[in-house]
Nucleic acid binder design. Sequence first.
DNA 1: CAAATTTGATTAACTGTTTAATCAAACGGG
DNA 2: CCCGTTTGATTAAACAGTTAATCAAATTTG
Lengths: 344, 344
Amino acid sequence: MSGTAVTIREVASEAGVSTAAVSKVLHGRGASVRVSEERALHIREVAKQLAYVPNALARSLRSSRTQTIGLLFEHFGRFADGPEYYAELLDGLAATIFPRHYRLALLPEVNHNDIGGSLADGRLDGVIWGKLTPDDETKMLVQNCPIPIVAINAAVPQVQTQTIHVNCDNAHGMSLGLDHLLSLGHTRILFLREEGELNTPDCIYRLAAFRNHLQSRGIDVVDSDSLTWDWNLGQFAEWWQSKPVHTAVFCWSERAGGVFLRRASEHGVLVPDQLSVMGFDSTRYCDFTRPRLTAVSQPIRQMSESAGTLLLDMIEGHRPDQSLTTFPCGLDVRDSTARPRPHS
Amino acid sequence: MSGTAVTIREVASEAGVSTAAVSKVLHGRGASVRVSEERALHIREVAKQLAYVPNALARSLRSSRTQTIGLLFEHFGRFADGPEYYAELLDGLAATIFPRHYRLALLPEVNHNDIGGSLADGRLDGVIWGKLTPDDETKMLVQNCPIPIVAINAAVPQVQTQTIHVNCDNAHGMSLGLDHLLSLGHTRILFLREEGELNTPDCIYRLAAFRNHLQSRGIDVVDSDSLTWDWNLGQFAEWWQSKPVHTAVFCWSERAGGVFLRRASEHGVLVPDQLSVMGFDSTRYCDFTRPRLTAVSQPIRQMSESAGTLLLDMIEGHRPDQSLTTFPCGLDVRDSTARPRPHS
DNA sequence: CAAATTTGATTAACTGTTTAATCAAACGGG
DNA sequence: CCCGTTTGATTAAACAGTTAATCAAATTTG
């Protein structure tokens, strides 16, 4: 009824008992506190009547547990640029941590000091570390982090503190995708990067894997740079009119693949008849392109579920199941890849 | 260095001053506490040396401010079913609240009790209330909520406590969309709902607006139910073979529109030549369908930015700018609508 | 020069909950 | 009946900050 919140003390005095008794009855805490059945009943009733809600801050201050895990990310404010990855990640985390009575805090990514504070200021029980590039300051933060960390697809150092890495091997994914193209008969394959994304860790790593795998398969990569094309959105016509030797294009991401397909369509290039196209990350997006985009898949949903489980296990002192840390890529063959057309 | 966190008391004793002085210097709190410049310098140095990080819980407990706003949602765990809306919403919130030093907590949606607890347990300074259907218990929660609320597109009651509604008028959007079809020459327009979504507030409201607007434009809605089709994914062929009189389909959501377009394509129905199709909510998704889907747009990004601003203004005691609460829908004409083909 | 104000600092009481320590009474067994 | 255990309950000290109240010394004002 009143403006201010009702405290455990008010419940106690209203019920004519000590605060310890109320705490014990309502939250089951305090091993050495004992309350009779009838008193417990009475306390519960009084609490209900007063609409008592325990103050979570006070509880957390005392117990050093907040039931909150933080999510650290590079892309807050830019979710909409590629929402599928984040959506799956959030879904996986929500599905595992909410039923276990944790909440999820999105941490502002401002600067290292802020992040360091977030990790140590007592408000988090653990952190999911997603996609932060590992500079020296980051390493320091991880090393000094007082709470458990699970890193998803993040190149953050493994240190003595409680840190677990959940990864999907992009090199393996690249080999799956390339072998698919090779088995169709393609040998001249272009790796396509967008100019704005040249320096993202994912893009760099995937290009390296691309080159490695082609070499390991005996494909002539004499002038390997000719296999890479850094483009901006207007360049399609120019490229196509130069009569490229390539019969297939491997796009560094599925979004890039989608844009490329649209360009091809606009210029009358038939995919997959005249050109095969594939991408990396088989999100639902790939089902909406026309033709639907063949793509390498990362099991992001499962990875994030594992990440959540592993983190909660660490927090709660269970032995985390380390078999949940590495995941294989897969391949979703859709409609954008086919045999190269015979030379005419 | 040590295992446990360093407290303000340790800093104080190390620096040879009182905790009040440290609090004042490091956090600027306490009007009646005064510290000389040289002491302040010394305290800052000691704090840095000890790597002191203030405990946010203790601070919040005393000050009743947590710099955290909660996000209440129906769709956690199902983000991936339609990520565009959530992505824009999160982006807008992140863009406004992070720079003002607030963080965002995703609240588990379990049951009403849990939600009530979340609102009153002291951990939140305010709430963004998104898309919760308004039953009686919800109304009670809103009425008794001790913190400010901003509801986005949510039919939650306006009450005497601090509550602001940010809305986009779907009826207006519906009129824009329908007038577009009418001006093209369509008069027989089908409203399409998916069976699983029949009872969502959005779907109900949009159908009502659909009927109202057609009537207001003098379109004969004698048997208004014949204007509605509740479908499941397999029914397209059956419907089309029944030679429907409709020349245009208005899909209740853009996702439904996308599925419908795919079905049409699979059955050789040419859109927009044989049938015009449009949807509600012009997300980026509409650019990926083939043909690209004409759709009514809601400025979700701007709405969520406003929501964030309004909430923070309420929290911080500023007068919220109430002009930021209603937004007009728009219309994005793409490739899925055209004149009906002449009767042959 | 006395009075008033400003400056610099501390003390101790708060914030709301948990829990170790303690105590009294009741009970059971030999 | 005495001693050890169990049951039921309370007290008071944490947890880590903030801040009103207080005070002494220094400075300004009239």
